[in-house]
């Protein structure tokens, strides 16, 4: 993945999370991964097109998703209902959109696809021929792993 793409995603994730959660967010060590990734329970995915092809996956466990959705909505949400899913989808959209805006400013043309959300147990994402950058984010509600796989259009 091009070096120029890394920072916009890290910054966008950091800024958006800190803003919507109104609390401290800590970024873990970035690393690369190409094996299939187990999904913690709730995964929102946003596709990227344009100069590049790829996707961004936001992965967290259920309690984290519920608490983040509760904080963002300002009410206590106990079940993973449509509102929670819509909220997490929106969070994914906000972070990716802000990253893409930053990339636009740097001269890269990216388009987004509408986000989709997956929930369930024992899920796994397998596209092992694609190398993904993992950006772990520690929030007060738990860990969110942002899994960015982008490659140049050949």
């Amino acid at each position: 993945m091009r070096v120029e793409y890394i920072n916009p995603f890290v910054e966008a994730a950091f800024n958006v999370l800190r803003e919507v959660l109104q609390s401290d967010v800590r970024r873990g060590e970035l690393y690369l991964k190409s094996t299939s990734t187990p999904v913690m329970g709730v995964a929102a995915i946003v596709g990227l097109a344009g100069d590049v092809e790829g996707r961004v996956l936001f992965d967290m466990d259920r309690p984290t998703a519920l608490q983040i959705a509760s904080t963002m909505n300002g009410e206590e949400l106990a079940t993973l209902d449509d509102l929670v899913k819509a909220t997490i989808t929106e969070l994914a959209n906000m972070i990716t959109a802000q990253a893409v805006t930053k990339l636009h400013d740097l001269g890269f043309r990216f388009d987004l696809t509408p986000p989709a959300i997956f929930t369930g147990d024992n899920m796994e994402v397998s596209n092992s021929d694609v190398e993904a950058l993992i950006v772990p984010m520690e929030t007060v509600h738990g860990k969110i792993e942002i899994n960015v796989a982008i490659r140049e259009r050949a």
Partner: peptide, 15 residues
């Protein structure tokens, strides 16, 4: 030049 953060032990996609 394209500088990429990439581990060559993973899949290499190049023309």
């Amino acid at each position: 030049i394209f500088f990429e953060f990439h581990d060559i032990l993973n899949a290499n996609t190049l023309p």
